[in-house]
Amino acid sequence: MLQQLEQIQKQASEELEKINDPKELQLWKVRYLGRKSKLTRVLRSLATLPLEERRKVGVRGNEVKNILESSLAEREKILEEARIASSLKYKKLDVTLPGQPLSVGRLHPVTQTLEEICDIFKRMGFQVVEGPDVEWDYYNFEALNIPQEHPARDMFATLWVDAEVGGGKARLLRTHTSPVQIRLMEEKRPPIRVVVPGRCYRYEATDATHESMFYQVEGLAIDKNITMADLKGTLFEFCRCVFGEERKVRFRCDYFPFVEPGAEVAIECLACHGAGCRICGYTGWVEILGAGMVHPDVLRRGGIDPQAYSGFAFGMGVERMPMLRYGIDDIRLFYANDLRFLKQF
């Protein structure tokens, strides 16, 4: 019996060495480890053997079984590896072929900028609100200290819906987002802290730097003890977020009828770094927003006591920012809607 076992092992091992095909391997398994295999028959016949031999044959028989099983596993592994290796050899791709094109959508650069601006102010506790594009003269001008025939009306060439009449009763396309200041004050009590994105319109011949339609973001914060220092801090923080730590920022006195004291924020020109070039009009600075403390008369018109409360307001042009950042030299590109332009952002 023992001799028979040795022979089974030898024969099985020799055959296994030569097998290169998984199907043959399967047949080998049936032949040597299957229910009808010689080995199985030997192990089944153990009961018929005398005790002494039964033990010896039993031990050796199980040994052979284990050896054959592990050899099989090893062979299986070798064959599998060979299979993978050969399959990879024939499947090699030209990885330089273009991938499946999928359509990529993008937001308009102005929308992207609006989101960026609003997000910065949202982190500072401002809420986003909106107002109508078609406004009353009252909200756009009169309530903002710009009565009819006020020289500051020249700063806002207006597209009128109705003919201009006194008393703030004519409708117009808002020339700035500032009318929303009054609407908010009429509606809410301090503390107020909002930003107002929106479309604005001007009666203006279009050229590379002027559009008859553009976007602004207005800001308004009203509470007790709000100062120009807060305005300066808020706007400097904004500029740092948008233009970076290194960019120089200038906060100077300027005039807008609805703020007092008034201010303007300019940043060092991105193109020439302050040396002076065509973009900054050779001054080294680029104006990015107007601001100031809400004029007491404006607060009063909004129903807020200027003795008890103070507030700041600011307004910025939106197209300006991508223009400066990406070196866009013509504002009209934004609303020409040419995909060759839009896809760059």
Binding site: Q127, R193, K224, I226, G233, F236, F251
Partner: peptide, 16 residues
């Protein structure tokens, strides 16, 4: 105007 300090808003936040 360059003498004005730059501070962060410390006023209370309005209702969201």
């Amino acid at each position: 105007y360059d003498k004005i300090p730059a501070t962060r808003l410390s006023a209370s936040l309005p209702e969201q």
